[in-house]
Design a protein around this nucleic acid. Structure first.
Lengths: 137, 137
DNA sequence: ATACATGCAAACTTTTTGCGTCCCC
DNA sequence: GGGGACGCAAAAAGTTTGCATGTAT
C-alpha cells in the first residue's frame, strides 16, 4: 500500500544502520547522512517519511526536550535512556519488566494502547561531570 | 534561593489546580488561564518559570508530539497516558510497577537517573472512534 | 541598593505545508 | 496514465532570548 520510493528505502536503511550502531538521530542528522547517498533529497521528505514510518509502527519517535530522535522498532516495549542536557538517546540492554495489563486497562478506560514507553531521564556520563551555571542549557 | 515572585506563585497555584482536576495544560493553555489573574503576565515568563520549576523537580514536563504538557510532581514515578491524536495527557490510577534498579543501572552505565517516565501512548476514548483519512493529523 | 525576574517583541528551531513536477504502480 | 511522493521554499508552531524596567530581598 505504501509506495516504495528510493527516498523511503534509503531513509529506512540509514536509520537502521545508525540504530544498530546505537545512534538515534534527529531528523536533520539523518538528513545530513542521507544526502551523502541522495544529494537532492529534501528535509521535508525526510520528515514526511519519518512521520509515516512512525505511524506504521516501523520506527519509534522519541521525544527529547527540544526535538525528536528516531529509532528502528525492534520490540513493542523498548525503553530509552534520555540525557536531559545533551538530549542524546541511549539504549538500555535488557528490557525493563513492567506490571501493566493492557487488556484490563483498555477495558477500564476505553483508551486504545498502541505502545508503552519507558524513558529513563537524567544525565549521561559525559554531561554529568560538566559544571553548569544557571545560564547553561 | 529562588525568588518568590507573584508570577511564579500564581503559575504554581494554577498548575496545581488544573492538575488536581486531571487537566495537564500546555504552556499557552496555562498562560491563558493565568492571565485571568495576572493580565499583564507574559508568555515568556510562563515558559521561564515552567522550565525552572521543572528543573527543580517541582513539576513534570510531559513531551507530547508537537508540544509539552505540564503536571505537578506528585511522585517520582508517575505514569502518563498520552493520546497520539489529540495529544492530551491523562493520569493513570495506580502506579505501574517496574523492574528497574536505579543503583545498579547507574553503577553499570555511569548515567545519573533523575526520573523514570512511563508513557502509555495510544488513542483516547474520544479520538479512537473518529474516522481518520490519511490527511488528518 | 542591587541583583534577579518580568514584559515585550524579536529571533530561533524544529516541523509542516502548498504547489508544481516527477515517477512508482 | 494517474495519483501519490518529491523538491523547494515559505510558513507555522512552539519556545527562547536580549534588553530595558520593575521588584523581591
Amino acid at each position: 500500500m505504501e509506495r516504495q520510493t528510493k527516498q523511503r528505502k534509503v531513509i529506512m536503511e540509514e536509520l537502521e544502520k545508525l540504530s544498530n550502531s546505537k545512534i538515534h538521530p534527529t531528523a536533520s542528522e539523518l538528513y545530513i547522512e542521507i544526502r551523502k547517498k541522495l544529494p537532492r533529497i529534501s528535509l521535508g521528505t525526510v520528515y514526511r517519511n519519518l512521520e509515516d514510518l512512525s505511524k506504521e509502527g516501523e520506527i519509534v519517535k522519541v521525544n527529547c526536550n527540544s526535538f525528536c530522535r528516531f529509532d528502528i522498532h525492534h520490540e513493542k516495549e523498548k525503553s530509552h535512556v534520555i540525557c536531559k542536557r545533551c538530549e542524546k538517546v541511549f539504549d538500555i540492554k535488557q528490557p525493563i519488566k513492567i506490571g501493566f495489563d493492557k487488556e484490563t486497562f483498555e477495558k477500564e478506560t476505553g483508551f486504545k494502547v498502541l505502545d508503552l514507553r519507558i524513558n529513563v531521564c537524567g544525565l549521561c556520563k559525559d554531561c554529568k561531570n560538566k559544571k553548569v551555571s544557571k545560564g547553561n542549557k
